[in-house]
């Protein structure tokens, strides 16, 4: 039987988010962590690693992308450029 698939996320340095880098196979979290270190950080690419078994990731459906993200489309007033402020006014 094939070993389970894990997704790997790496924080490249303190202050940055963990970012998805790829996947690997491992029997458990500990092995996934050690394999992630060997596969994805051979040149100090990370200071922290998250691994999560791929089957636990729920992803939005690209076929419904338009309708799913639709609620954000018509709300320009959420952006600062929506508001008129005279040029003479600064620090705003």
């Amino acid at each position: 039987m094939e070993w389970p698939l894990w997704e790997v996320f790496i924080r490249s340095k303190q202050g940055l988010d963990h970012k998805h880098v790829g996947s690997l196979h491992a029997v458990d979290a500990q092995m996934a962590m050690e394999n992630a270190r060997d596969v994805y950080t051979r040149r100090r690419e990370g200071v922290s690693i998250w691994v999560v078994e791929s089957k636990y990731i729920h992803a939005s459906n690209p076929d419904e992308q338009e309708s799913f993200f639709d609620p954000a489309d018509d709300k320009a007033y959420r952006h600062p450029t929506f508001y008129e402020v005279p040029d003479s006014i600064t620090h705003i």
Partner: peptide
């Protein structure tokens, strides 16, 4: 490592 990155992409 390169083989593993690529297998992972193919999967």
């Amino acid at each position: 490592g390169h083989g593993l990155y690529l297998y992972s992409a193919a999967e």
